[in-house]
Design a protein around this nucleic acid. Structure first.
Lengths: 110, 110
DNA sequence: AATATTAATCGTAATATTGCAATGAACAAA
DNA sequence: TTTGTTCATTGCAATATTACGATTAATATT
């Protein structure tokens, strides 16, 4: 199939999976890390920074933008990218409730 | 292509992407949440709990096991599953260094 | 031994993802 | 106006993922 049966899961489970999915490719991780490292808006030198072709980078940026994790503002012929701070924090809260589940197991059969 | 060019990224970037990828499907999120909720070892009633066929669940469990996030111990005819605590904590550390990057942007051009 | 139970594996169909060449759109510079 | 620059979009090939029926493997039960 290749199609996740998202209708049988909760909204929260689907949300976690959607966020995780976008982090599930090293190019998108690298793009986000670069945006954090620069710590300001960057006007598209990501193609040089990361070793992928321009259409490929553009596609990854589109996915990040669609999830709201980055912003892209048109600036002449170039486009200015930066982290969407509010949305990043909101995403972090969702992911942390998942990652920080209570891990103290009572039984110990394994 | 469909094949990520992992060789051009750092080990850490690839590691983050690998962990994120496994969380990138709601069924695996649901499986993990259930293992946390039960807060003990569970002997395979996951097929009833989640609405997917047995081979599908088995496949998702395999991926979680391969990444070391869960343990599966044979117990007669059934198999006992639980969270691998040490590995979960290690994964959490990796993910948190990524999620908790400093978000204080100096410039504000966007 | 014959049968039942549980879960892994195999095989396969449907769909998604990744990557890039080619092209297009928008603007800047000459 | 022509040329260059920058980035998005289109189209396509290669590969990956998801899901499940059928089967198999291993152990229990009768």
């Amino acid at each position: 199939m290749g199609l996740a049966k998202s209708e049988i899961f909760t909204d929260k489970q689907n949300k976690i999976a959607l966020f995780a999915k976008v982090f599930g490719h090293p190019a998108r991780v690298a793009i986000l890390e670069h945006l954090f490292k620069i710590n300001a808006c960057i006007c598209g030198d990501l193609v040089n920074e990361i070793g992928l072709a321009q259409p490929t980078i553009s596609q990854h940026l589109k996915e990040l933008k669609q999830l709201g994790l980055i912003k892209g503002t048109i600036d002449g012929t170039s486009v200015c990218y930066c982290i969407n701070k509010e949305n990043w924090i909101a995403m972090k809260n969702v992911m942390n409730t998942f990652l920080n589940q209570d891990i103290t197991v009572k039984g110990d059969c394994c």
